[in-house]
Amino acid sequence: MKKIHTPLDDVSVRDLKAGDEIYLDGIIYTARDAAHKLIIGALADNKQIPFNPFGQVIYYTGPTPCPPGKVIGSCGPTTSSRMDPYTIPLLEAGLKGMIGKGPRDESIREACARFGAVYFVAIGGAGALIAKSVMKSKIIAYPELGPEAVCELEVSKLPLWVAIDSTGHAIFQNS
C-alpha cells in the first residue's frame, strides 16, 4: 500500500491514481461548512486565513468533544459535496488535497485536473477507527464554531482511498 506524507508535492500527487488505497502521514487541517464560509470570505477580502494552504490537505470533519485521556473524539469524514461551492478558491490558493466522503460535482473533478490536486475519501461513519490515526490535535482558528472550528491534526497511517486523481479520473460514476 502506498504511503504519502503532507505537505504534498506535484511528484507524489501525480503518482496517485483513482482507486488507490493509501496511508497518509503528517499535518492536515480540519474545516467543514461554517469554517469554509469564513475562509472563503477572508480569501475574497485578501485577509489572512488560518493556515497557508500551499501543498496542504483539508479534512472535512467536525469531531465529537475530546473525552479525558484521548487525543481527539470520534472524527470521521462529512459529505464533501457541501464544500463544492467553496473549493475552487482554495485550490487556486495552492491547496493540494481534500479528504471527505461521497461523490462531488463535475466542476471539482475538472478542478483537480486543472490544479493537479487530489480528492481522498475516508470511511464515513468510522469515526472511532479514524481517531486511532490521530496523534495530535489542536484548535488553530474559529473556536467559536465549536465542532466546526479549524484544527491542526497530526495523523499517522490515516486509511484513505483516492477518489479523484490529479488527471481528473474518479472512482464514483457521478463525480
Partner: peptide
C-alpha cells in the same frame, strides 16, 4: 474485494467504539 475491505473496517470501527467508549460516528 474493495467493498469487503470497507465492511471489515466498519466492523472494526464498531469494536473500537464499544471498547473505548468513543462515538461510532462523529455525527451523533
Amino acid at each position: 474485494l474493495e467493498a469487503c475491505s470497507i465492511l471489515e473496517k466498519i466492523l472494526l470501527n464498531c469494536r473500537i467504539a464499544a471498547d473505548e467508549k468513543l462515538p461510532l460516528c462523529q455525527d451523533t
